[in-house]
Simulated assay, not measured.
Amino acid sequence: MRTALVIGTGLIGTSAALALASRGVTVHLADHDPAQARTAAALGAGTDESPEGLVDLCVVAVPPAHVAATLADAMRRGTARAYLDVASVKGGPRRELEALGLDLTPYIGTHPMSGRERSGPLAATADLFEGRPWVLTPTRDTDTEVLNLALELVALCRAVPVVMDADAHDRAVALVSHMPHLVSSMVAARLENAEETAVRLCGQGIRDVTRIAASDPRMWIDILSANPGPVADLLAQVAGDLDETVTALRALQSADEQKRAEGAAGVESMLRRGNAGQTRVPGKHGTAPAAYEIVAVLIDDQPGQLARIFADADRAGVNVEDVRIEHATGQQAGLVQLMVEPRAASALSAALRERGWSIRQ
């Protein structure tokens, strides 16, 4: 791949353009808002000038509702050897293209499973896709050269290719992305009018659950409008679980011992189902989740504290597998949770204590 045209210079389009440009591909940028394309160009994502001739690959990075029309326009103008989109739904846009009667041999639907709470070109980074799955949905009509160019794009962005059927993809992202976003928003909505004294008690749990609720609603309306059926089906199942859990919790208020026992059993069943589901979430490097031990370290909110902790862990010969930070409300301090292999936890705790760190159980 020597040349590419990226149509749509939001977070995903600009990030892909930055990755391609950093690896020597000449990237042309286009957007319905020329100012946004100029911003992406100023960031080093390419040039906002139109290509003089045929490019190798046209990447369409627009909202799902506009994918088919944008692709159809680019294909009719003959702008590229190959075309792909990066929308978060795949079945609908392809059916729209088929209805337009276009030759789809030069097209493949794709979806990089990566993003941020922020949107727009200023939120873009060249490493946004590194190590992340990038779904490809080829059909029997997809030309081999087109598939190869799509795989080259994935490789240049240092993502991990995953081949799926388009409709299977849409059901999967409804489960792992679209439905969780709505549930996160529903939980966060409970905070909108909550008492300030209650909100001040927010800890890491509520932060984890509501983090993705900060995303742009306009973007999510586009996404959910393109995949409403599978998301609604899943939310109906969640609603059923909520009804059962509410019934079980009400039973715990009963004066009848048998009803309280049934309520406790119902709540426990829900929690254990949650345990079982959570263990299926892939862990580090996509492997089965490992059982790490946490070494919790109290730190001040001062420059260089995290660097010192990681340097001291390195001196102790311990690999930190993951890290979380729990901030103390109203204090210039926080708790850094270092996740390590169980056999390394004692050695790391001892080494950090020797270097003056305050370890918490």
Rank of each mutant, 00 (worst) to 15 (best):
T210V: 13
L18Q: 07
T14D: 01
R360T: 15
G330S: 01
A265I: 04
R218A: 15
Q253F: 11
A316C: 09
L201T: 11
S225F: 06
Q337S: 05
R171L: 06
R94S: 01
D256R: 11
V25N: 01
A19Y: 06
T105W: 10
I221A: 13
L57M: 07
L97Q: 08
A80Q: 03
T47H: 00
A99C: 02
V27I: 04
L153E: 10
A82T: 12
H169V: 04
L20H: 05
L20M: 06
L298M: 12
D127T: 15
V231K: 02
Q302G: 00
I299G: 00
D170E: 08
H66V: 09
N275T: 14
A288E: 08
N193I: 00
N148Q: 13
V135Q: 02
R211W: 00
L252T: 15
G46A: 01
A351E: 01
P34Q: 06
F310R: 03
M186Y: 14
E268T: 13
R250Y: 12
W134H: 10
L156F: 06
A168F: 00
W220L: 01
S346I: 11
V154C: 11
R272K: 14
A333S: 15
V297I: 11
A311E: 08
H111R: 03
E195F: 00
F310Q: 06
A4R: 07
L306V: 09
Q253P: 05
S358T: 15
S349A: 14
I108C: 07
R218N: 05
A296D: 06
F310A: 11
T26D: 11
L224W: 07
P93C: 06
V209E: 09
L191Y: 10
E326K: 05
M339F: 13
E98W: 09
A313G: 07
T110R: 09
K259L: 14
A82G: 12
T79P: 07
S349R: 12
R207V: 03
T139H: 02
E268Q: 14
P63M: 08
D103N: 14
H28L: 01
G92W: 07
E321G: 09
R190K: 08
Q204V: 06
A276D: 12
G91L: 12
A194F: 02
L11C: 11
I294K: 05
